[in-house]
Structure formats: C-alpha cells, structure tokens
Design a protein around this nucleic acid. Structure first.
Length: 558
RNA sequence: GCGCCCGUAGCUCAACGGAUAGAGCAUUUGACUACGGAUCAAAAGGUUGUAGGUUCGAAUCCUAUCGGGCGCACCA
C-alpha cells in the first residue's frame, strides 16, 4: 500500500464515520479535506502517521483525541492495516501488514522508469525560463546554479505530469551588444578595450576566430567591421552558450531572441495591446506604463523620449508572446540582483489583463559565493577571474557540479570552496548516492554469476520482507512520488536530492544488516534471497529515477 | 530611507505549522577472512541571532530588533 493509497483509505474512513452519524463535520470541510500521511521519525509510531484528527478537532467541535478515537477503529478493520492507534495529542499511527508493505517492491520494479511519476500537474502548460544571461560572455558560476536548478525543475514538473517548455531568452538587442561588438573590434585591431567594454580572455579568442574566418574584415570601414563583429560574435557566443549548457546536461526547448521581437513588430503590438488596456500614458516625451496601479513602486518607461524602446518594453512583448503560446504559469528563475523586477513583471501581467497571481511566477535565487584559500573570491570580467560553467565541469565533472548546486535551497546563498572542487574531493554526497546504486548493480552481477535472479513477479513473496531495515527501506521508497510532487509544487528541486541522500542511507543500512546472496556457511532461504533482490532492485530503480530528475548519472560501477 | 532573501551543531546545509530539531564534513571510538569499507555502528556537539505575539502545538506564521547578502534608472 502506497502512502497515497493510505491517504485515500483514511479519507474514506472519515467519510464513513461522518455517514454513520458519529462525527459532525461541515460539508465544505469534508469536501476540501486533504489527508496527509507521513513516515514518523520514531518507528514506535508505526509505519505511517496522520495528524488529520488534529486538523478536524476545531470544525468538529471535539477534542483532537476524541476525533482520532472515532477514526482509528475503522482504519484498524481495513484489510492490510494491522493496527491503528491514537497517540500523543491526537495522531493516528498506522501499522501495515508486512506483505502489504512489501508489495511496494514489486510495484516499483514493474513500473520501472515510470515509478514516481504522477499526474499531479496534468493539463498544466508551463513555461520555465532560466539563465538568460547576456550573450556577451560565457556563462559563469552564477548562471551555473540556474542551469542545474532550472533544468532539474523542468524534469521534476514533467514527471508530475506538466507540459514544460524550457526557455533561454537571448538578449541580442541593445547597447550591451554594441559594446560587445566594439570590444571585439578593438581586440582585433590590437587596440585597448573601449570604456565599459568587455575584457576577458574570451574576447580576444572570439575576435581571432572571426578574423581567421573573415581575413578581409580588418580592411573594411569601421562601421562595416562593427557589423561583422556584432553578427559573427553574437553567433559564436550563442553557440558556445548552447554547447556549454548541453554539455552540462541542461537542455532548452526554445532559444528566444529578443531581437526577433523587435524585427517582427511584436514590441509595437505589445505597446498597442497595453494601450488598449488603458495603462499607458505619456510624460516628459516618454511613453510609460502605469505599473504602480498594480503594486510596482514606480511607473516604468516603455519608450524613451529619444524614441528608443526600453528593455522593459521587450520584456512586456516577451511575456505576451509566452501568454499567446498558451503558457500558464510562465515561470521566471532570476538571480537575487533581479528581485526588483518581480513587481514590474507582475505589473506587466496585470496591465495585459492576465492574472499576476496565476499566470506568472518569479522565483528568486540567491547568489553563489566562492572561497579560495579560505577567502571570498569576487569575480569580475575586468579582472579576468571569472569562473565559467566549463571550468566547473572540467574540475569536478557534470554529476558532482550539478549535484552540489541543486542540493541546496535557492533561498540560501551557497558557498563553494574552489580548492575543494578542484581537489575532486569525494565528500560530495552525490557519491554516497551513486555508490548505493553501483553497489546494487554489483550484487546483481554477483547473483547472475551464481545463477540466481529475482525470479518471476508472481513468485515474489512480499511477506518475507519483515526485517526492520527492510521496513525502513520500503517506507522510504513509498515516499518517492510524494517527494517529486512536493518538489514540483513548491518549485524546490533540492527536495529530490535530500530525499535521495536519505534513501541511500537507508539502503546502505539495509545492505549492512540484511544479506542478500548466500555465501559459504551463511544460510539463506532462496525465497528470501529472491525477495531481497526485488527490494534491492526497487531501490536501484528509485535511485536511478531520482538521479535522472537531477540530471545526474546512475553508474553501474564506480 | 524603502524592498526581497538569509541567520539552525565547529564548518556546509536539511526539516508539508506536528511527536525527542536532523544529515554530511571535521573530532573521538569500534567493525576489513569486504554480496564493493566511496560502507556501517557508536560518542560528542543546539536557549534554531534576540525579544514579544498568534495556538492544542512555532525553526516555520505575525510584530519589533540585531547581523549578513542583494536591489531601488528615460541602463541593459
């Protein structure tokens, strides 16, 4: 019995208690009631515990324990439930029959890669935009965090049934691109970089490549040269970013060009649509959007008095484009330096007649801080000390990098010690998880050599899995679908990572105490060996499925 | 000044408003005739920054305050 099935069972028991006239509950309370069951930390509290009686105490007008005393006996009568006891302030602790619990192993193995997937977000069409760093340089360590988190979030939401389009917004219009072109031009000419230009080593490399492919370029008039450097540089830089993210296991379904919004007239059209909604006005020769109507702290300029459209105008056009493509919500994953954008983005949505509470979500992630020799490293493109996504991959590999970045809540600043990273230290918990997976694979290899396998599904006897460590493991395996759904609902990918660490721990402890294969004078009933092979394979399945959600490999050997 | 995020073990971090706040690293001590020791067992480590409040129950919610990070453009 899975936790979800148990929740439904508890709900049914409550309904029948109400139907029998033993418990009075307002109809709306009963209709909207969500029963949660959880694995108690203390195993004296049964296999699962629910606090539903505590929640119902007030609407029922009865003490929580009294409510629990009504529900528990009905649960205890249900087939598969060994006992249901009232404890503490009114928790109901449920213990399942061993075989009912063990059945989960067969369920998981048969479901395979599908286990953990639910239809929680079925029907939702979600747009998930992340990184979207300017194509004027390689993705640095800050962007890498979003590459790991955003990509994992996309996978998690898909696993819970959502249709997700991952998207990278390329800021290929505007003055920063002019500066980029001018910087390339200067580098090619051997001149010092322009003021406020881009300086890194990569500028020289790109300039050299362009000159290599267009030997005549330096002979052209300056204006034409700038045009070549702009177009070619943009292309090369974008290609590099695409390559880097793909190498990192992060895939974008859509690469969206800001320039295309201008060229297609989408920005103009967006301005018209906002005008129709009545939130556009003119002042001091500029065109403004009255975002203060919707909680922004000041109104924003759409078209400057010199006639140039602002970045904000293309932001508005971009959101409308997403909306026209049918997404709700459009999720933006932004760095902490952009949190001031939340208000204005929401205001765009409201001004466009959409619902800022439903059609857009802005997730703010905190920065990655770096330590070297015990001191914080301040990156600056000017100082040429930027650490890129490719550097990180080269040092520790994709698995360790993605894991280190995704295992922590994006609400927290994280600190990465570069010395530790470059030393490829094995204290990264990702190895603990991968090792559990590799260990299971090794057991299966050994079993195969001994001519043993888990046997056909109909011969699996779930009632044999009665060891305490087996019970722990089964309980943890059962949580997986809920963890994924919760991580998706809260947009918190790190929950999956933390869960896998717990699961790997429970597996290692099971492995330590419960021998799977016979050896020498260790006697093991063949049917127990087979049952444990089912359990171990179920664990392997869940670890592999979980790592897949994080974009981390599940190696068969390490 | 206004706004967003954070403050939990020596360090890095967890904890749908739930029962005795948990892991890893580091420290101390055990288990190598190993189904892979990249493991396991155990010890030690905490007034959840501080002070109030809300309730059956607060690390979590509210208020104040202290400390840290990041923002407050006709820049992109």
């Amino acid at each position: 019995m899975t936790p979800a099935e148990l929740s439904a069972t508890v709900l049914a028991a409550i309904r029948s208690t109400v139907d029998a006239g033993e418990l009075a509950l307002p109809a709306d309370v009963l209709a909207s009631l969500e029963v949660t069951v959880e694995r108690p930390k203390n195993r004296d509290h049964g296999d699962y515990a629910t606090n539903v009686a505590l929640q119902l105490a007030k609407p029922a007008g009865r003490p929580p324990r009294a409510v629990a005393e009504l529900i528990a006996p009905r649960l205890a009568e249900i087939a598969g439930i060994e006992s249901a006891d009232v404890a503490g302030p009114g928790f109901i602790n449920v213990t399942l029959d061993v075989a009912v619990q063990g059945e989960l192993a067969r369920t998981i193995v048969l479901a395979g890669a599908e286990y953990g997937h639910t239809d929680t977000f079925a029907g939702q069409k979600i747009n998930l935009e992340f990184i979207s760093a300017n194509p004027t340089g390689p993705i640095h360590i800050g962007g890498v965090r979003w590459a790991a988190v955003g990509d994992s979030l996309a996978r998690i939401l898909r696993a819970s049934g959502a249709s997700v389009t991952s998207e990278y917004y390329i800021n290929d219009a505007g003055t920063q691109i002019d500066k980029f072109a001018a910087s390339l031009y200067a580098a090619a000419q051997g001149k010092p970089a322009p003021e406020d230009g881009y300086v890194g080593e990569y500028i020289k490399e790109i300039a050299d490549r362009i000159v290599g492919e267009h030997p005549d370029v330096t002979a052209l008039p300056e204006g034409e040269q700038l045009e070549v450097f702009r177009e070619e540089g943009l292309q090369l830089m974008t290609d590099q970013i695409k390559q880097s993210t793909e190498d990192f296991g992060t895939h974008f379904d859509v690469w969206f060009s800001e320039k295309s919004l201008h060229e297609s007239g989408a920005v103009e059209k967006a301005l018209d649509r906002l005008r129709e909604q009545g939130h556009v006005f003119e002042k001091d020769g500029a065109v403004w959007l009255r975002t203060t109507d919707f909680g922004d702290d000041r109104d924003r300029v759409l078209v400057r008095s010199n006639g140039e459209k602002t970045y904000f105008a293309s932001d508005a056009a971009y959101f409308l484009d997403k909306r026209d493509r049918g997404f709700s919500p459009a999720i933006y994953l932004l760095g902490a330096d952009h949190h001031g954008y939340v208000g204005r983005l929401k205001a765009i949505v409201a001004c466009a007649g959409a619902d800022p509470d439903k059609d857009i979500e802005v997730l703010i992630g905190q920065f990655v801080k770096m330590l070297k020799d015990g001191e914080e490293v301040r990156m600056s493109k000017r100082a040429g000390n930027i650490i890129t996504i490719d550097d990180v991959v080269e040092w520790i590999g994709v698995d360790a990098a993605r894991y280190a970045l995704v295992r922590q809540s994006t609400d927290s600043n994280i600190t990465l010690d570069i010395d530790l990273l470059t030393r490829q230290s094995t204290d990264n918990p990702v190895y603990y998880i991968q090792y559990a997976h590799a260990r299971m694979c090794s057991v299966r290899r050994n079993a195969a050599e001994m001519g043993i396998d888990k046997g056909p599904a109909e011969d699996f006897d779930p009632g044999l899995l009665r060891h305490e460590k087996e019970n722990d493991l089964l309980g943890k395996l059962g949580e997986f679908p809920l963890v994924i759904a919760k991580a998706g609902e809260l947009r918190e990918a790190h929950r999956v990572a933390r869960y896998l660490e717990e699961l790997a721990g429970v597996y290692h402890r099971f492995y330590d105490e419960c021998r799977i294969l016979p050896k020498g004078d260790i006697e093991l009933p063949p049917e127990l060996t087979r049952a444990r092979l089912w359990l171990a394979e179920a664990t392997q399945t869940v670890i592999a499925n979980g790592l897949e959600l994080l974009g981390v490999s599940a190696p068969e050997r390490m």
